[in-house]
C-alpha cells in the first residue's frame, strides 16, 4: 500500500505525458485527422505509404542521415583523440577540458544564432573576406555547404561531452596494464590497440549511442542556423516534423512522421547497444 504511494506520482506523470501522447500519436498516424474534426477516419497504412513517396521526407531523411553518420563518427574520433591528448595531470589539460566543454552549457539555440552571426551572408567571416577583397563563401546559402556547416556546428557543440566521457573511460584502464605492455616491449600504437582500445569498449558504446540519439533529433541548431533553408534543403527529420505540424492540418500524416522517427531512434539505439555488447563481453572475458 505505502509502496503504491511512493510509486504512483512518477508513474502517473510518465503515463500521462509520455506514454499517452505516444499512444495517441500512434493512433492518429492511422487516421486522416485534421486537428479539428471530432471523428478522425481510419486510413490504414496510407500515411506511412505516403511517407515513402514524399520527396520532402526523403530529402530530410538523407540530411538527417548525413548529419548523424558524419557527426557521430567525427564527434567520437575527435572526442577520443583529444581525450588521449588531455589524459594526464596538469592545469592546462583541465583548462582545455573546460574549453571544449563549454558549448554544452550554452545550449543549441544560442549556439545556432552565434554561428549564424559568424557564417551568415552578412556575418563575421563574410566581412573579413570582403575587407580582404574576396567574395563571401556560401556557408549557409548553398545547400551542400549549409549541410556541411550544420555538421560542423553540431560537432563543435557536442564533441566536448565525448571528450569528458572518454576521459572518464580512460581513468578505468588500470595503469598496471600499460606498465605490463611497456615491459613486454609494446610501442605506443600497439599499447593503444591491444590495451586501451579493448578496455574502452563500454565507453565507446555509451558515446556512440549518446551522440547517435542526440543527432537523429537535431532541431534547434538547424532552426537558428539555416531555418531549414535554402528552400528546405537543410531540413532534418525533426525539423520537418515540427514545422509541418504547425503549418499544415495533416496531423495524421505528421503523427506518422513522428512515430517513424521515434521507432528509428529506439531501434538504432537498442541495435547499436546489442551489437556493442559483443565488444564489451570481450573485455570481461
Amino acid at each position: 500500500m505505502s509502496h503504491a504511494v511512493l510509486l504512483t506520482p512518477a508513474t502517473v506523470m510518465i503515463a500521462l505525458f509520455m506514454l499517452a501522447p505516444i499512444a495517441l500519436a500512434a493512433y492518429l498516424s492511422f487516421t486522416d485527422w485534421d486537428g479539428l474534426s471530432p471523428n478522425p477516419q481510419s486510413v490504414g497504412w496510407d500515411n506511412y505509404a505516403q511517407l515513402l513517396r514524399d520527396s520532402d521526407v526523403g530529402h530530410a531523411a538523407v540530411v538527417t542521415l548525413i548529419v548523424t553518420v558524419v557527426g557521430t563518427l567525427t564527434c567520437n574520433i575527435a572526442g577520443l583523440g583529444l581525450a588521449l591528448l588531455l589524459n594526464g595531470p596538469g592545469r592546462l589539460n583541465g583548462v582545455l577540458r573546460a574549453v571544449v566543454f563549454y558549448p554544452y552549457v550554452i545550449g543549441p539555440i544560442i549556439i545556432g544564432f552565434l554561428w549564424s552571426a559568424i557564417l551568415g551572408a552578412n556575418g563575421a567571416i563574410a566581412h573579413v573576406l570582403g575587407n580582404a577583397g574576396h567574395s563571401p563563401l556560401p556557408f549557409l546559402s548553398d545547400p551542400t555547404w549549409a549541410v556541411g556547416s550544420i555538421v560542423a556546428v553540431v560537432v563543435w557543440s557536442q564533441f566536448g561531452v565525448n571528450v569528458v566521457l572518454y576521459l572518464a573511460g580512460l581513468q578505468t584502464v588500470p595503469p598496471a596494464l600499460h606498465e605490463a605492455a611497456r615491459v613486454d616491449g609494446a610501442g605506443r600504437w600497439q599499447t593503444f590497440r591491444s590495451v586501451t582500445w579493448p578496455m574502452l569498449a563500454p565507453s565507446v558504446t555509451v558515446n556512440l549511442v549518446l551522440v547517435l540519439v542526440g543527432l537523429l533529433r537535431v532541431y534547434e541548431i538547424v532552426l537558428a542556423l539555416t531555418n531549414g533553408g535554402p528552400a528546405g534543403r537543410t531540413n532534418t527529420f525533426a525539423f520537418l516534423i515540427l514545422s509541418e505540424s504547425f503549418r499544415t492540418n495533416h496531423l495524421g500524416y505528421g503523427a506518422a512522421q513522428a512515430i517513424t522517427l521515434m521507432v528509428v531512434i529506439a531501434a538504432l539505439a537498442l541495435g547499436l547497444t546489442a551489437l556493442r555488447r559483443r565488444a564489451e563481453d570481450a573485455v570481461s572475458a
Binding site: 499517452a20 533529433r217 525533426a238 515540427l242 505540424s245 531512434i265
Partner: peptide, 14 residues
C-alpha cells in the same frame, strides 16, 4: 530515447 522535440506535438493534445 524519446525525442522531446517530437513528443511535444502529441503532448499538446493531452
Amino acid at each position: 530515447f524519446i525525442p522531446s522535440q517530437v513528443l511535444v506535438i502529441p503532448v499538446i493534445y493531452v
